[in-house]
Design a protein around this nucleic acid. Structure first.
Lengths: 345, 345
DNA sequence: CAGCCCCGAGAAACCGGTTTCTGGTGGTGC
DNA sequence: GCACCACCAGAAACCGGTTTCTCGGGGCTG
């Protein structure tokens, strides 16, 4: 089933078939009708491969993510695929499983078959990235600043998110705070860590990771360090921490506050419901596509984008247990503190 | 950067470059070395598009899923992409957002650029599917029986899962059971429904859907119908139901048991931890790839695959409240029933 | 009525590879 | 020393489209 078959059955040249099917109006309506009818009858669909070669553009973009099993990424991928789909693009997705080496391999591999690439929270070193990407391939990074002329970036301001968390915990009177840090190669993690250390130099940082098991493993250390609040790299880690605290008999939020990042849907369903920093996942995906699309259309105009996170306070954070008095004194909000509230705390 | 450039710089023909880069041993080692060196120096990577056209195979497969935001699917997609990646294949993913129309469009679109297709839990009618798929495109369906010579299928035996749930609830003394049904177009839902109605003809079936909000919306109806146990189409729906029951002040599992399907990771972290039917998601993805790969390699040998689910009992199921005595009498397990247990129930 | 121009459609080149076909060279066997 | 064969590399065809180039015919103008 090729264009030649259609041309033959319709008694025209391949060029004419191509013109008709691409909506050029320079064809005799009679011929055009015939071509359309024949092509429909034969169930002809042009090969995207051949079109890709001829047009020099495959109408396909790649997206590589660190871990599809982390609900954060499917949501951005979903938004990205539908946005791209609306513009007639397909997207191939690759999962590096948090491994920088694998990431580089995948990027290299995928680059050969796409018109553009979005790197979601890439874990590889920037120098390696630069080395590996096909020269001139339009590209956008999410959650990672990249040298702008070469690569655009769509960022969520993790630092701001961390500041909001710290402010929130501060109001609740927390003084001793632990951070279960994400993968060292994660740029978001670096941003969060940086913001944390600027505001709270004596926070205890516990190398952890990005998965629930890792949160589970690290939570005990946080408790032993005397923290009254644990900030987790992401919600998955927070889930793990919550589970561990339960087995340890540490009540949340009464004895320990826990905060996550991402606001994946399950955050609202765990117990206690997780206070977390909501990242605009769908918007991240959508904007990434838009920026990439702009770069595909030559104009490298679109400036890098910065998105804002929001703190979502649920049930996993509460007043610090051993410094409740201090805390009450420091609450910044304008609400009047009543005796009842004191009693209840 | 094309093969012609490499050929020129190396002083050989394009054919020779191609031969060298494809590991043919019929080339003079001296020339081969020169070619390899030049191609490395130039950072040459052959265009997958051109290769695809020339070889008549794009080394790309498509997978279309109903909803990437449902954690079930990313896990199978992940397993599928890494398995396919190990065999040198890329995968393009498309999300139909549970819409059969969109699904058909996507399938049609994706078919034009891939060597094979896996349809995850397709929602479209089988007749429409047959109509839309490029004739002769190797294909596999998951969770949906398809006419085997044309299409292979990798199934999880949902009926068995439902039977296990029913047996479990039966042992706990539940007599009045509600089922929050999934999308009508879901074949898994049909299987579960069928198994349910065979064992429990008087179960109350409440049309619901596949998302948390829908579970939230339906849970009240289940409670009003006097059910002591709610079986949910999937874990997401169960999460929604759990949330609604909490707002209604219905204690789980004391007053109401809740069961899900899928066993997404969060099921273990919600409160109470969800009793659910674990579906082997990663294996589903992996096996789907294997079956598809076999079909790609001409031999349509690989028979359809059937995978078994497992009931995972956690905290969201307990003895039926109003029939506790009956229940105790019917417990099938060999455990001795002590007075203490009676008292505790 | 002759000359021009424009329009529409086919021929051919091209995209960047792979693969078949062909021809030249060197080695072997008689 | 000649004929034949194997082997290696280049020429050319091909994959299935798109696009440029070319050419013939019809309508319009002078």
């Amino acid at each position: 089933m090729t264009i030649a078959d259609v041309a033959e059955k319709a008694g025209v040249s391949r060029a004419t078939v191509s013109r008709v099917l691409n909506g050029q109006d320079t064809v005799d309506p009679v011929l055009a009708g015939r071509v359309r009818q024949v092509s429909r009858r034969l169930g002809y669909h042009p090969s995207a491969i051949a079109q890709g070669l001829a047009r020099g553009a495959s109408q396909t973009v790649g997206v590589v993510v660190p871990d599809l099993a982390n609900p954060f990424f499917p949501e951005v991928v979903k938004a990205l695929t539908v946005a791209a789909g609306n513009d007639g693009f397909s997207v191939v997705v690759a999962d590096s499983d948090e491994d920088p080496e694998a990431e580089l391999r995948l990027i290299q591999d995928v680059s050969r078959r796409v018109d553009g690439l979005v790197l979601c929270s890439p874990r590889a070193r920037i120098a390696d990235l630069r080395r590996v990407v096909r020269k001139g391939l339009p590209m956008v990074c999410t959650n990672r600043l990249a040298d702008p002329p070469l690569t655009a970036s769509v960022m969520i301001d993790s630092g701001r998110g961390m500041q909001a968390v710290i402010a929130h915990l501060g109001e609740l009177g927390h003084r001793r705070i632990a951070y279960l840090a994400g993968p060292p190669s994660s740029s978001s993690n670096a941003d969060r860590l940086h913001a944390l250390e600027r505001s709270l130099p004596d926070a205890v940082v516990i190398p952890t990771g990005s998965k629930s098991q890792e949160g589970y493993a690290s939570a005990a250390a946080a408790a032993e360090a005397g923290a009254t609040a644990i900030i987790c790299f992401n919600d998955l880690v927070a889930f793990g921490a919550l589970a561990r605290l339960r087995t340890l008999g540490v009540a949340v939020p009464a004895e320990m506050s826990v905060v996550g990042f991402d606001d994946i849907p399950a955050a609202d369903f765990v117990h206690p419901a997780l206070t977390t920093v909501r990242l605009p996942k769908a918007e991240l995906g959508r904007r990434s596509w838009e920026v990439l699309r702009d770069r595909l259309g030559d104009r490298g105009t679109s400036a890098s984008v910065r998105l804002e996170p929001t703190l979502v306070v649920r049930e996993s954070t509460g007043k610090a247990i051993d410094t409740a008095e201090d805390a009450v004194g420091k609450i910044a909000s304008g609400a009047t503190i009543t005796a009842g509230e004191h009693a209840g705390s």
